[in-house]
Amino acid sequence: MGSYLQYRWEQSIASHLNKSEEEEIHLYDKGRICGFLWHVFSYETVACLEGEQARGRLDQMKNMSCYIFYEMDAAAYIIDRVTSLKAIDFERESDIYVVDVDFTWTYIRTHEPPWYNPYFYHHKEVERR
Rank of each mutant, 00 (worst) to 15 (best):
60 Q>I: 01
68 I>Y: 02
7 Y>A: 04
100 D>S: 05
59 D>G: 02
80 D>V: 07
117 N>A: 09
96 I>R: 08
112 E>N: 13
43 Y>K: 06
105 W>F: 13
95 D>I: 13
73 D>A: 06
21 E>A: 08
117 N>G: 10
43 Y>V: 03
100 D>F: 04
109 R>F: 13
43 Y>N: 08
39 H>V: 09
110 T>L: 14
52 E>A: 11
125 E>A: 12
8 R>M: 15
41 F>P: 00
129 R>F: 07
61 M>E: 10
106 T>G: 02
47 A>T: 07
77 Y>S: 11
25 I>C: 05
34 C>Q: 13
45 T>G: 01
104 T>N: 11
8 R>I: 06
1 M>Q: 08
127 E>W: 06
28 Y>A: 03
129 R>Q: 05
39 H>D: 06
89 D>E: 10
38 W>M: 05
70 Y>N: 01
111 H>T: 01
110 T>I: 15
110 T>D: 05
77 Y>R: 05
39 H>K: 04
127 E>M: 13
114 P>I: 11
42 S>N: 05
59 D>P: 05
42 S>E: 02
54 A>P: 12
4 Y>P: 07
73 D>N: 14
28 Y>T: 00
24 E>S: 14
52 E>D: 13
50 E>L: 15
74 A>T: 10
13 I>M: 04
108 I>F: 01
59 D>N: 14
91 E>N: 10
119 Y>P: 00
66 C>D: 07
79 I>E: 10
22 E>Q: 15
100 D>N: 10
50 E>M: 14
41 F>T: 06
90 F>R: 01
80 D>S: 09
25 I>R: 00
